[in-house]
Design a protein around this nucleic acid. Structure first.
Length: 513
RNA sequence: CGGGACGUAGCUCAGCCUGGUAGAGCGCCUGCUUUGGGAGCAGGAUGUCGUCAGUUCGAAUCUGGCCGUCCCGACCA
C-alpha cells in the first residue's frame, strides 16, 4: 500500500456512511449477523461497551441507584396500558406467539422442519423498553411514601424492529441501560430527570470526549408517554446530529395507568411521579463518527481497552530477547504503578511474530491512544519511541523512558483533551443563528449544512411541516445556560420569523441519524 | 413496507447476455530472502456460486418464491 493512501477508503470526505462502515470493519468492532438487523459485537467493540458500562455504573451507584433485572418478555396487555406509549412503539415490536417447536417431516424432500406450535393465549412482546414491566413491579413495591424514591437501573438488551439498521447507531437488538425511578412529588422527579441529564453530559465530556448540546425535546419528538424528554445531542463529522442519551419525566402517566400509588404523608392515596432514562450501544457509533479519521478508529483513552500498546522492534535475532524483555518490563511497571482516572493503566505488549509495520497499522486502525515502539537502539539510549493516535501516523517523538513512565497519565489526558477540543471546535463552527425564512430555506438546500438556531413560537403542525419539507427536526430546545456560547445565543432574534410572534424558545434544527 | 441495485473463496470482485459442474487480486499457510517498518520471490490450501423450487441430458449462468445487504423513500424516544 502506498504511503499517500489512507488506511480507510473511502475517506470521510468522499463517502461518510461508507467510511463509517469501513472503520468498523478495519477496527474489528462488529459485523452484521445472520439475524436481520442484528450485530455481532466483536471483542474490540464489546470492550468499549464494557468500559462504558463499568464507568457509567459507578456514576449511577454514586447517585443512589441500584441495579435490578426484569423479564425480556412483556405481556402484551402491559404495553396496552399506556395508550400513547403503546402507539409509539407499536410498529417496531417483535412478538412471541408460540412456546414450542414440533418436528415435521416433509414427505417430498424427506427433510425435517421445525414448526412453531403451542400458541400462547397471550402473546409476549420482546421489550422495546421496560417502562411497563418495571412499572408493574413498582406498583407492588411502592406502598407508602417511605418506599420512595425508588431508584432502579437495569443493564439489558432491547429489541426494536427497525426498518433501516446501521451498525451501532440503529440495530434491531441493542444493549443499553434503562433507569426507572419513582418519586413522591413532581419536583423530586424532575430533579432526578435533570440530574441524570447532567450526568450524561458529564459522562460524554469526561469519558468519551464528546461535547453535546443539552436540551428539551419538543412535543413532537418526545418519548411516547412522557411529559418531558431531555436529550443530549452530539454533532458528528458530517455535521449530522445524534441523539446520544435521553432522560424522561413521565409525570403520573405510567403510575396512573399501572397503579403505582402510595399512602402519602397525610394519609391520602397518591400516584407516584416516575422517570426513565437511557443510553445505549449507540454511544459507540457516536464516538466512532465523532472522533475517527481516515486511518481508522480513534478511541478516547478512558474507553480504550488497551490504552498503551507496546510494539517491540526486533530487527536482529540476537537482540530479540532483550527487546521483548524490556517491553514486558515497561508494561508491568506501567500496570502496577500508574493509574488514569483511578484505574490501573491498560497496557498491551504486541509480541506477535509479524512485521512491526503491520502491527503499527493495525493499532492505528483500532485506535489505540498511545503506541510505544522499543528497539535495540532505544534500550541503549534509555528512550521510547512515542506515537499518539490524535496525531498523524507518521509522527513520532523520542522520550526518556523514565520521563515517559511519569508522564503517561498526562499524555492520555492530552489525547482526551485534544479529541474533545477538536470536536468542540468543529461543532461550534457548524452551528449558526438564522432569523429569516429565506435564509432558513436556503440553509437546508446545502448538502451538509450543520445546525442552526432559530427563534421559535410555532405550532407542532408548523414544526412538522418544516421537518418534512427539509428532512430536518428540531433536535432540541437548548438549555441556554449550557453548551452554547452567549455570543451565538445573542444572535437569535426576539421574534419568530415564521409566525411574527415574540419568540417563546430557541429551537436548534439539524439533520440526524 | 414501497422504488432501485446486489448476493460467486476470509475480503473486493470477474464469469451470467450466448447453460457444458469456477477464476483474479488481496488475505491465509509453507519455505527462502528481507528487517526501525503495513517488504520481495517461490510454492500451497480454501467455494454444495445466499436459499428453496422450476425448466433442462446438464444451471453460478434461464424462471419464480423466500432470506439478506446497500442506496432512495416511508418509518424511526
Amino acid at each position: 500500500m502506498s504511503a499517500s493512501q489512507t488506511a480507510i477508503q473511502p475517506t470521510r470526505q468522499q463517502d461518510f456512511p461508507e467510511w463509517y462502515q469501513q472503520v468498523i470493519k478495519a477496527a474489528d468492532l462488529a459485523e452484521n449477523s445472520e439475524t436481520r438487523g442484528c450485530m455481532v459485537i466483536k471483542p474490540w467493540g464489546y470492550g468499549i461497551w464494557e468500559l462504558i458500562h463499568q464507568q457509567l455504573d459507578r456514576r449511577f451507584k454514586a447517585t443512589g441507584h441500584e441495579n435490578a433485572y426484569f423479564p425480556l418478555l412483556i405481556p402484551l396487555s402491559y404495553l396496552e396500558k399506556e395508550a400513547e406509549h403503546a402507539e409509539g412503539f407499536a410498529t417496531e415490536c417483535a412478538v412471541v406467539t408460540h412456546h414450542r417447536l414440533e418436528a415435521v417431516k416433509d414427505d417430498v424432500t424427506g427433510k425435517t422442519k421445525m414448526i412453531p406450535t403451542g400458541e400462547l393465549a397471550e402473546p409476549y412482546v420482546i421489550r422495546p423498553t421496560s417502562e411497563t414491566i418495571i412499572g408493574a413491579a413498582f406498583a407492588r413495591w411502592v406502598q407508602s411514601y417511605r418506599d420512595l424514591p425508588l431508584l432502579i437501573n437495569q443493564w439489558a438488551n432491547v429489541m426494536r424492529w427497525e426498518m433501516r439498521p446501521r451498525l451501532f447507531l440503529r440495530t434491531a437488538e441493542f444493549l443499553w441501560q434503562e433507569g426507572h425511578t419513582a418519586h413522591e412529588t413532581r419536583d423530586e422527579a424532575i430533579v432526578e430527570t435533570r440530574m441524570i441529564h447532567q450526568l450524561y453530559q458529564d459522562f460524554l465530556r469526561d469519558h468519551l470526549a464528546i461535547p453535546v448540546i443539552p436540551g428539551e425535546k419538543t412535543e413532537n419528538e418526545r418519548f411516547p408517554g412522557a411529559d418531558m424528554t431531555l436529550t443530549i445531542e452530539a454533532m458528528v463529522q458530517d455535521k449530522k446530529a445524534i441523539q446520544a442519551g435521553t432522560s424522561h419525566y413521565l409525570g403520573q402517566n405510567f403510575s396512573i395507568a399501572q397503579n403505582i400509588s402510595f399512602a402519602g404523608r397525610d394519609g391520602t392515596q397518591e400516584f407516584a411521579h416516575t422517570t426513565s432514562w437511557g443510553v445505549s450501544t449507540r454511544l459507540i457509533g457516536t464516538l466512532i463518527m465523532a472522533h475517527s479519521d481516515d486511518d481508522g478508529l480513534v478511541l478516547p483513552p478512558r474507553v480504550a481497552t488497551k490504552q498503551v500498546v507496546i510494539i517491540p522492534v526486533t530487527p536482529k535475532e540476537d537482540t530479540r530477547e532483550a527487546v521483548l524483555a524490556a517491553c514486558h518490563a515497561l508494561a508491568e511497571t506501567l500496570r502496577s504503578t500508574k493509574t488514569y482516572h483511578g484505574d490501573p493503566l491498560r497496557v498491551h505488549v504486541d509480541a506477535r511474530d509479524i512485521q512491526s509495520g503491520q502491527k503499527k497499522w493495525e493499532w492505528v486502525k483500532k485506535g489505540a491512544p498511545i503506541r510505544i515502539e522499543i528497539g535495540p537502539r532505544d534500550i541503549e539510549s534509555r528512550k521510547v519511541c512515542l506515537q499518539r493516535r490524535d496525531q498523524a501516523p507518521t509522527e513520532k517523538s523520542f522520550m526518556d523512558k523514565e520521563e515517559f513512565i511519569r508522564m503517561v497519565p498526562d499524555l492520555l489526558q492530552q489525547v482526551h483533551d485534544h479529541l474533545f477540543a477538536n470536536a468542540l471546535k468543529f461543532r461550534n463552527e457548524n452551528i449558526s443563528a438564522c432569523n429569516d425564512a429565506e435564509a432558513f430555506h436556503a440553509h437546508w438546500s446545502k448538502e451538509n449544512p450543520g445546525w442552526i438556531l432559530t427563534p421559535w413560537a410555532g405550532s407542532s403542525e408548523q414544526e412538522d411541516q418544516l421537518s418534512k419539507q427539509h428532512k430536518i427536526t428540531i433536535r432540541c430546545l437548548p438549555i441556554t445556560e449550557a453548551g452554547l456560547s452567549a455570543d451565538l445565543l445573542q444572535k437569535v432574534a426576539a421574534y419568530c420569523f415564521l409566525t411574527g410572534k415574540p419568540r417563546e424558545t430557541i429551537a436548534m434544527w439539524g439533520r440526524s441519524y
